[in-house]
């Protein structure tokens, strides 16, 4: 029975780590291939946090209930609070750099 529980834990750790690797690789591909600042902000915000939270959840499941997992939960909550603040601050000063996106919509021509 205990062996079964340990194998279930290893399976969950494996699934969380594979998910984290997938999202981090998609972050790198998105930052290289996207043409515009705003799409790069989108890749740098959502995919990065998905990968980070997946890797932290894998570490928490691997550790079990202890004082170390409390520290990991603190780091995870701190990261998930501060990274949207950072992306919002970076996105708020693009007016000073004359960044015009290359793709237009129909409403831009009507102005």
């Amino acid at each position: 029975m205990i062996d079964f529980i340990l194998s279930i834990r290893q399976l969950f750790v494996f699934i969380f780590f594979i998910t984290g690797i997938y999202f981090l690789l998609s972050t790198a591909v998105g930052l290289i291939r996207f043409p515009n600042l705003y799409t790069r902000l989108h890749a740098g915000s959502k995919c990065l946090m998905a990968g980070g939270i997946s890797v932290f959840m894998g570490c928490i499941v691997l550790e079990g209930i202890s004082f170390v997992s409390l520290k990991l939960i603190v780091i995870m909550i701190f990261l998930s609070i501060t990274n949207p603040v950072t992306i919002h601050v970076i996105a708020s000063f693009d007016n000073n750099y004359n960044l015009i996106p290359k793709t237009y919509t129909k409403e831009d021509f009507e102005k």
């Binding site: 972050t27 930052l31 600042l37 790069r40 902000l41 740098g44 990065l48 990274n83 950072t86 992306i87 970076i90 996105a91 000063f93 693009d94 750099y97 960044l99």
Partner: peptide, 11 residues
Amino acid sequence: SLPDRLVAMNC
């Protein structure tokens, strides 16, 4: 530009 480098540095 500079905000691209800043986003990549954060990542």
